[in-house]
Write a protein that binds this DNA or RNA. Structure first.
Lengths: 148, 148
DNA sequence: ACTAATCCTGATAAAATTAGTCAAGTATAA
DNA sequence: TTATACTTGACTAATTTTATCAGGATTAGT
C-alpha cells in the first residue's frame, strides 16, 4: 500500500515533539511516549535508529532524554523516513549495484529504470518537508494523539 | 522501506507483457509466468485483482488468456499500483474521512496534512508513467527476468 | 558514595501481513 | 467430447512488523 510502518509513524511523532522542544532540556522517552500513546520499549528502538543516523542526540541519566542534533529547519522528513524505514527503493533491484553504481545484470527487471526514477521523485518529495514545517503545521495544537 | 510487494512487482511485469502483446491474441498466465519465473497460482490472484479494477480482460478456455482492456498509453502505473496494492496512503489517517471528506477528529495526527500532500505527489508521479513507456523502456530486451 | 532516573543493547515472543499452494469449478475452442 | 485456461475461495507457510523484556551503563543530585 505504500504506507509507513508504525516504526516510521512513531519516529515522526517523536521528531515532532523534539522539534517543538528544540533549544530546551532533553525530552525523555517516557514523556514522548505518553503524549502519543506509544509503547516505551518500542520507542526506545525507534529513537535508537534516529540516533544511529545522527538525527538526534541523547543524554543519559537523571534529567536525560533526547534532543535534535540540528535545528528543525535542517532536518527533512526524507532523512527521517530513510533512517526509520531504510532506503526508498520500490524494488530491491534498485539497491543491488556493482562498484560502478550500475545495476548488476542479474538484478535488472523490466521496470528497474522506472523504479529508480520514481524512487528519486518520492525521495525529493519527502526531502522538501522539514521538521520545522511539521512543527508549524500543528501550532494550533488541534491534533489528536491516538491516530496510528 | 516504501517498497512494492511481490504482488505489485509481479502485476507490473504481467502488465509489461500484456502491453507488448497488445492487439494480439490473449496471453496465458502460464506463458507470462514462464517469462519472469513467477508462480502460476499467485499470478492468478494478481491478474484477478487487475481484472476487478478493469485494467485487463480475460478469455477462458482453449487459446484463452489475458489482454489489456485499453491501449497501453491509456493505462498508468498509478492505476496499476493502486489496483494491486490498494490506495496510496502513507498513514491510515488519510483514509478515514467523514462524509464531507474531512479527516475525522479521532483520526488526525501531527502529520496528517503532510501525509496527504506527500501521498498526492507520489500518486502523481506514478500516474505520469504509462504502460506504453514501460514497454518502450525495454525495447532492447536486455532485461533479466529473475529480479524480484 | 548512594540513589533514582534514564538511556543502551540484545534476545525473544506475539501479531500481522505477505507469499504461495491447492482444489474444485466454469467456460471455450477445436 | 476433450484439453485448455480462467475463476474462486480456502488454506498453509514464510516473512516482517510490532512489540516485550531483562540486565547493563551513565548521569544528576544529594
Amino acid at each position: 500500500m505504500l504506507k509507513l510502518s508504525n516504526r516510521g509513524l512513531y519516529g515522526i511523532k517523536a521528531l515532532y515533539e523534539l522539534a517543538n522542544n528544540y533549544g530546551k532540556e532533553p525530552l525523555a522517552i517516557r514523556e514522548i511516549s505518553k503524549r502519543h500513546g506509544m509503547p516505551v520499549p518500542f520507542l526506545e528502538q525507534v529513537l535508537h535508529l534516529l540516533k544511529k543516523k545522527g538525527l538526534v542526540k541523547s543524554r543519559r541519566g537523571s534529567n536525560g532524554g533526547y534532543t535534535l542534533s540540528r535545528s528543525p529547519d535542517k532536518i527533512t522528513l526524507g532523512e527521517a523516513v530513510i533512517a526509520l524505514e531504510g532506503p526508498i527503493a520500490l524494488c530491491d533491484c534498485i539497491l543491488k549495484r556493482d562498484p560502478d553504481n550500475k545495476l548488476e545484470k542479474e538484478m535488472r527487471c523490466v521496470a528497474s529504470n522506472i523504479y529508480r526514477k520514481l524512487g528519486e521523485k518520492v525521495e525529493q518529495a519527502f526531502n522538501s518537508v522539514t521538521l520545522l514545517e511539521l512543527a508549524e503545521e500543528n501550532s494550533d495544537k488541534t491534533y489528536i494523539a491516538t491516530c496510528k
